[in-house]
Design a protein around this nucleic acid. Structure first.
Ligand SMILES: [Mn+2]
Ligand SMILES: [Mn+2]
Ligand SMILES: [Mn+2]
Ligand SMILES: [Mn+2]
Lengths: 231, 231
DNA sequence: AATTAAATTTAGACAAAGCTAAAAATAGAT
DNA sequence: ATCTATTTTTAGCTTTGTCTAAATTTAATT
């Protein structure tokens, strides 16, 4: 039984599964010392609550989560740091795929799910440099810095914008393939300017002007588009 | 128990470990229906012969190797095809790391060992395109084509070149980190022209002229450098 | 406060990939 | 042809990550 690199093994050598759990817990809000239930994690990861319990114990053992039986888990500082480094890699790879290899924004997530687990600090730093240190991924999500800083954005959902207000489309909340393809088909893209012309009380649909062209979109669409309001 | 995609599971979903075994068997010559022993594979992969036996059965079950108990394994056509696709990915990623991210040739292998297992045909095709379809990796090894064609080279080891013959350094046989760093230190690089001036009978060392400069190199070095002879 | 429903954990099993130690087969040497 | 050394396989165990079914705890309702 090799005993070399105990430090490395315990603190740095994360399995793919462990990394995915940390990422999921972070996305469910477990980074703000909020307790996330095993059920919520299981549902998000399409696994079983009993599996989550097992992993909660293991991650707790490693000091990456605080776990209280029957209460759920939250990330420790070390856990947040690790989660952010995975998310950083995921989003940088997504930018790379779009900018350098002409992937469409609905194709990148699946591949990034694999690439995010490649272990090489130099690799991801060089990718970052090649891309000239992008601030957002193809879906408008912010890319954490190397030292784990997260830039929050002052953006609103289009569905929450008042009538006659105007802004720029900067992100999607739902980044599923069908939604992204729908946006493509309707020429809705990040960077477009959007003005809210009217709201329909009956179904909450919106009449908007997008890059000059007038169109009507459902509440479901508006509730999944982030807009940065013009001051 | 999900039973969907039986075809995919059985014929395409290879684990990382399975892929590494196929690659190793190919490198040991198992692509020419030559039988490779479990011991040889175990030694190459730094694992135990009993583990190799287990994997031999599994790969045989999947139709990727022919396995005869106590006789060893050789790759089937499907096995060769799969091995070549991994090798292709490995070498393309190595070129990418050197050409696009300024990695040195002694840094790329370890990262490529991870990247070669990323599952996305589009990804590797786009990388190939971005690199303008390179024919060789940073160590001079040929890159198989998408349809599994392997370009053999008419190259010789420097140690086998006759006195006064001349050529271009096109590859390394040993691509270990220490050897590559040694070559860097001594300004020996692929593309350099080499002329054999003299051989020392006593220790088989060579006196050579490399890009004009005269130098002496040991047999061990000469036996690990591939040279393409000028006609 | 007692009962019931829901969430969570435990116990036990499984598959993948590895290991060690013992058994079996092969190959080499008399 | 027999014996011996080496190679290879088998049997059984381990770890990681998953599952199901049963037990337990918590939360909700009367
Ligand atoms: Mn994504
Ligand atoms: Mn992932
Ligand atoms: Mn390599
Ligand atoms: Mn590999």
């Amino acid at each position: 039984m090799s005993n070399k690199n105990v430090f490395l093994e315990k603190y740095f050598l994360m399995t793919r599964s462990e990394e995915n759990y940390l990422k999921t817990i972070f996305h469910l809000g477990g980074g703000d010392s909020k307790s996330i239930t095993t059920n919520a994690i299981a549902e998000q990861m399409e696994t079983k609550p009993s599996s989550v319990t097992d992993m909660a114990k293991k991650l707790s053992e490693k000091g990456l989560v605080d776990y209280v039986r029957y209460q759920g888990v939250s990330l420790t500082d070390a856990g947040v740091k690790t989660a952010l480094s995975i998310i950083r890699k995921h989003r940088l790879w997504e930018v790379f795929l779009v900018k350098k290899l002409d992937f469409t924004w609905d194709e990148v997530h699946e591949v990034a799910e694999q690439l995010e687990h490649i272990k090489s600090e130099k690799l991801i730093d060089k990718i970052d440099e090649l891309l000239e240190f992008p601030k957002h991924d193809p879906h408008g999500d912010p890319i954490p810095t190397k030292d784990g800083k997260f830039q929050e954005r002052d953006e609103k959902l289009l569905s929450e914008m008042p009538i006659n207000s105007q802004g720029v489309c900067v992100g999607v909340k739902d980044s599923s393939v069908p939604f992204l393809k729908f946006l493509d088909k309707n020429k809705i893209a990040l960077g477009n300017t959007i003005k809210v012309l009217d709201k329909e009380d009956f179904d909450n649909s919106l009449r908007i002007q997008m890059d000059g062209k007038e169109m009507r979109i459902s509440h479901q669409i508006a509730a999944n588009l982030y807009v940065k309001k013009n001051d």
